[in-house]
Simulated assay, not measured.
Amino acid sequence: MLQVYGIKNCNTVKKALDWLNDHKLEYVFHDYKKEPATLQKLEEWEKKVSWDQLVNKKGTTWRKLSPEEQASVQDSESANRVLLNNNSMIKRPLIESPKGILLGFDEEEYKSKL
């Protein structure tokens, strides 16, 4: 079964969940607001995708960081420290599937990998 991580009120997450529901794919949704990501989970994901792919640098949470905080994100350790304190900065949605990790919503990628 697919594991979907994100925030319920995120528009991209809503699109992804609608797509999964429309295609009758079963999933478990993990809301970062209720179930924050753990260091263990971040490290598990980083075995499949690079740490810099997990960091959403286009979102509001990233923009709220000071320039010094942004500049401090240089490797997986520093990224994980920031992501653990700001789960909403993790690229959303993140889907764990048998074919790997999918980040964001891309209908073509979903068709080919889900």
Rank of each mutant, 00 (worst) to 15 (best):
D31I: 07
L102M: 13
T61F: 02
E26R: 03
I95W: 01
G59T: 06
L54N: 06
P93D: 03
K24W: 00
E77Q: 14
M1K: 13
I101N: 03
I7F: 05
P36E: 07
R81W: 04
K14Y: 01
D18M: 08
K8I: 12
G6R: 01
L65M: 10
G59I: 06
L20F: 06
N80P: 10
K57M: 13
K48R: 14
K41Y: 14
N9T: 15
K57N: 12
Y32H: 03
S50G: 15
I90C: 05
K48S: 13
W19Y: 12
L17N: 08
E109C: 02
L83E: 03
K34C: 09
E77H: 11
D18F: 09
D75P: 12
T38Q: 08
N9C: 12
N56P: 07
F29I: 03
G104C: 05
K34P: 03
D18V: 07
H23C: 02
K14G: 00
K41A: 14
H30E: 06
D75C: 11
K34T: 15
A16C: 14
G6E: 02
V13C: 11
G100N: 04
Q53P: 00
S66C: 07
D52P: 00
F29E: 00
W19V: 01
R63L: 08
K14P: 04
L39Q: 13
S97N: 04
K24V: 13
H30T: 15
W45H: 09
I95N: 02
L25S: 10
K33Y: 06
K113E: 14
Q3G: 09
D75T: 11
D22R: 08
T12D: 02
K41D: 14
I7K: 05
P36S: 08
K91G: 02
L94F: 01
V73F: 04
Y110I: 01
V4F: 03
I90R: 01
V73T: 04
N85T: 10
L17C: 11
I90M: 04
E26Y: 02
E44S: 13
Q3L: 15
W51L: 09
P36R: 06
